[in-house]
Design a protein around this nucleic acid. Sequence first.
DNA 1: CTAAAAAGTTAGCCATATCTAATTCTGCGT
DNA 2: ACGCAGAATTAGATATGGCTAACTTTTTAG
Lengths: 247, 247
Amino acid sequence: MPSVTQAVEDYLKAIWRLSHEGGERVSVGDIASELKVSAPSVTSMVRKLKTMRLLNYERYGGVTLTPRGRKIALEIVRHHRLWELYLYMRLGVPLELVDGEAERLEHVLSDDMEELLTRNLGDPTHDPHGDPIPSKTGALAPVEGIALGQLETGTHAIVARVSDRNPEKLRYLVSLGLLPGARIEVEEKAPFRGPLTVRIGGRRHVVGADLANLVIVRGAPAASRSKGARLGPGVPPRSGKPRGKRR
Amino acid sequence: MPSVTQAVEDYLKAIWRLSHEGGERVSVGDIASELKVSAPSVTSMVRKLKTMRLLNYERYGGVTLTPRGRKIALEIVRHHRLWELYLYMRLGVPLELVDGEAERLEHVLSDDMEELLTRNLGDPTHDPHGDPIPSKTGALAPVEGIALGQLETGTHAIVARVSDRNPEKLRYLVSLGLLPGARIEVEEKAPFRGPLTVRIGGRRHVVGADLANLVIVRGAPAASRSKGARLGPGVPPRSGKPRGKRR
DNA sequence: CTAAAAAGTTAGCCATATCTAATTCTGCGT
DNA sequence: ACGCAGAATTAGATATGGCTAACTTTTTAG
Ligand SMILES: [Mn+2]
Ligand SMILES: [Mn+2]
Ligand SMILES: [Mn+2]
Ligand SMILES: [Mn+2]
């Protein structure tokens, strides 16, 4: 009987993320901090979601998503990441702002619009932070790679993903040029979780361990020419025609 | 103390429209039908808006917007029309669908995004139906022109505006090519609110009086070169024209 | 093994926004 | 001038989602 409101969508998405994509059990307290609401609010919502058969829940026992709940969560994640990419590529919204904007837009995306967005972006697979975009059917590519902080001195790599949980930190990472597609080399790594000296596009930067662990990298594909270079915003701000005529 | 929620925004926008852009008094009943809610809902909302000093209201006396209320209404109208134009021009959303989409998106547009949208569209002055877009400061160009139904036989004109109140009718008008920028000629007008025979881009159509009054036209600027031709979507959305291909 | 601490739940409120049914105004027609 | 029909308001209820304070269960540490 109850309907899928914006609050319901945000809860399901939060639980999906906290359970590391839908598997593990999630505690009431974690949901509360993730969504910045009180624990009683979570208990009450979680009981409602149970009656809607969107998650499994026993008192004092944490929650897991049902297939139906996961389906809705993935749909919202898809909306979120499509909007992020669109805003970044086509409207030139700064990377550290796209998450906040998408947080509201994700609840406002009709099927028609989703289709148009998808086509306009050429069936994209990843959002501008490097997170995979769930397919319409709910398939989700795995996030491959390891944390920058794990790399040894001398390693070359390409940034695959940057966490967007903290806009401040993301802003700083962006200012270093440490974003998806960037080629990097670890010039030095101090021991005991020490900072890394990283070469990024000509410049050298020292990056603390905490920050370095927000960045996921994958091995550089030999020293060939830039293949995986994710393009920045393609916004020639008032160019009439969106390039490719879709077939 | 109460805040400007989505409901508040929709009420203010409705009142603004019903009062013909903010002047005349509006009755509770009219607001109720416009928003498709019950009269008691309106009474209660209107009392709240009064405490927020967004409108003037006395029991049994109808309402008018205060300057603060009008300011918010215009901001939402601006959002609405910017989104409409953006969706139409850049994403290829069919004209008869943009209003519905914008109805939700209008509540989700940060200042940053509004700025980007505006720039991307080149400081537009009119939405795709031909309605003026309020400026950031609240200035609004007047709607000039007369209803198509008023024209006499033999008149040439250019469509300035098409009402979007009814998606079905709009869809039909679009199929006739009767949209902003179109050059037309009234070939014949039957008396007593009779239908018009109109030449639109090569083709001849018969348009009933009711429909004809949804279309506002202005005089054709001599028979010079097409100046006012409002461009269609910059997106060749997989077909030439936004021929709505509903599922 | 047991007693705090931490986590979670229940109880009771509040705010927002709607509705139906009952009541009260207002303004019009006779 | 008055009564009545229609418009508007009041009364009372429902649904959603959030909060604090108080209580209960589980977990952890000594
Ligand atoms: Mn993201
Ligand atoms: Mn959200
Ligand atoms: Mn419109
Ligand atoms: Mn709206």
